[in-house]
Design a protein around this nucleic acid. Structure first.
Lengths: 357, 357
DNA sequence: CTGTTAGCGCATTCAT
DNA sequence: ATGAATGCGCTAACAG
């Protein structure tokens, strides 16, 4: 006596039998309309619908063709954090625009590397990967590269043989610092993004910088220091405090608050990203410091909110959406165009910066 | 004479031959460490690495097992718009949190239905779908249902046989309107989200409501009207203007601006979402209207920004992230738990609403 | 603990 | 314009 085991799915075969044609013909009816008469095609499709055929099985098709129509996106931090980060979201917007045009789907791949089990990166059925702002030594990056699929790196120019899309963070940061210095600010402070993924919040010393794995904050810091040295200011007098901008707790606010209560109080704050800069603006408000009269703040990224808040934020504009567009285009586009691209940045002077008194 | 055709990929077979074991053993070495001796496993894995085996081919594995480890997410609007919408983003955050825990990947599927070609929905190799706030009659929904995979609907309780996660929009909207009315506001105006996906901006008449395909704005409108009727106000005197909140152009601002220049000027604005409400706050500022002294504004959703802006926004809180968490949990979790869930909403009174003069 | 057998469902030659 | 045969690469039963 037989049970119904797995309710055996209906396949090309069943349609072929029901329609009295061969499997090839059914396959063609679905994939290559030009290979059979309109009439026959219609009949096959009708029969298929009648017997409840769901269409070609995607997995079987992928196995056969070797293509998936999906690109995989791998983030440094957890996905959940990515959706807290306006910069990552703008990037996603760019990527998804291109995916949509190309009718490709976008797979967001968690990087869960804790145990020895096969990871989502190893299991992902994709045609290629975008890796977004990962530490170079990351195991996840190694796994992506091991897949031997097309890869595009974003904000990570240092992977050999991998095309990447990025900006000159150092130069851009230098512009930000030079702006404040040109306004005669001498008491500067820096609010840095996380150099390591250990959720540390607090002052940054040389020791910590040695162990830094995130390149972007390192480059931006170098840029700030370039401008500071150029102006012959004393770098040792400049406080650097680190704070991961994506924390749901409002660490950025607290950090800025304590920074503004130091003596002598800084008159100019360099924030490595707009999220931190905006926290600083709120901290200033809390302390009844007027921006920019008492305190100038310069951000980085030019997220949408930067131009909408009061006071609007002076910041470094980088083409966030375009970064996603270009990364996805490289991956989906003509293989001959697989080359790196450096995007331009621009200082946007708005209301949050003004001359030092 | 033979060319190297496709550089034939290395398979289990090759590893088995090279290691002098059977394919099963190699497969087990990768998937079921308990089925063979540690020693042998190590040897197999070493050989695999030596000959450049990349690990089990994901597509073949999927075909064999019938599982993908991926859940598909289908949006009503384009993906690109979704990333412009704080509500959708919060939802994504919730979904991704659960996916991450479950080590599932998340596939964002574009709904490109223009031509006759197979769509991404039909091609998606996923274990189930979440459909997010789609019009009921949507072709995309039909395609999802045709896949006969597990489905969870979000903000869309009316699909037969599909578990869904949603709020009582009508009741919530009623609370919002009742709040303004209790503050003695009599000149109300409504800024509505889009009832149809035709990007229309402007006044709403009954005719348009007849053709509405989006349920959420309809329900919210009904809720507003419930409160209005209950207070015996004249509904016909209440202006309703429609504006898709995700437009990149700042339509919401313009709409609010014109609404506030009407005579008699409304003293209370009911915005169907926080994005529109925030636009209205900016419009009020532009017209030098004090909020809440000259104008009260109530939003809907309680996006993160709502509590951060000045004045902070009175709004209806709905558990945005939790919606994603629950939807994903239903899909990934115990099949016996596949039931709908209605989430609670709460009026958050903040600075943007006050008594009418 | 290991190997043999048997498909998963499809797209693609090649022949008719 | 159509059909028969082949194997994509793998894992799950089962038998040793």
């Amino acid at each position: 006596m037989k049970h119904d085991k797995t309710p055996k799915s209906i396949t090309l075969w069943d349609v072929a039998k029901a329609a009295g044609v061969s499997r090839t013909t059914v396959s063609n009816a679905f994939n290559r309309p030009d290979q059979l008469s309109e009439e026959l095609r219609d009949r096959v499709l009708t029969v298929a619908k009648e017997i409840g055929y769901l269409g070609p099985n995607p997995m079987a098709r992928m196995l056969r063709t070797g293509r998936t129509g999906v690109i995989g996106l791998v983030f440094s931090e957890s996905l959940q954090y990515a959706f807290n980060d306006p910069v990552a979201i703008a990037f996603l917007q760019g990527v998804s625009r291109v995916c949509e045009q190309a009718k490709a789907s976008l797979m967001l791949i968690p990087t869960h590397l804790n145990d020895a089990a096969p990871t989502a990166i190893q299991q992902a059925a994709v045609d290629g990967f975008i890796i977004y702002s990962m530490p170079d030594n990351s195991e996840a990056v190694a796994q992506v590269l091991a897949r031997k699929l097309p890869v595009v790196a974003v904000d990570q120019p240092s992977l050999k043989g991998v095309p990447s899309v990025y900006i000159d963070d150092r130069l851009a940061a230098r512009k930000a610092a030079a702006h404040l210095i040109s306004l005669n600010h001498k008491q500067l402070a820096i609010i840095a993004m996380d150099f390591l993924s250990d959720s540390y919040v607090g002052p940054v010393d040389i020791q910590r910088l040695k162990y830094a794995t995130f390149q972007i904050p390192l480059q931006r810091l170098k840029g700030y220091k370039d401008a500071i040295q150029e102006a012959s200011l004393d770098p040792s007098k400049i406080a650097i405090v680190e704070c991961p901008p994506r924390n749901s707790e409002d660490d950025g606010f607290e950090v800025a608050l304590s920074l503004l209560q130091q003596h002598p109080r800084p008159t100019g704050i360099l924030a490595m990203c707009d999220v931190l800069a905006i926290s600083a603006i709120r901290a200033a408000a809390r302390l009844n410091l007027a921006v920019p009269q008492d305190l100038s703040i310069v951000g980085f990224d030019d997220i949408p909110l930067a131009s909408q808040i009061k006071p609007s934020l002076t910041t470094i504009q980088q083409p966030l959406i375009e970064k996603g567009v270009i990364a996805a285009s490289i991956l989906l586009g003509n293989p001959s165009r697989k080359m790196s691209k450096v995007l331009e940045t621009k200082l946007m002077v708005r209301e949050s910066s003004g001359p030092a008194f």
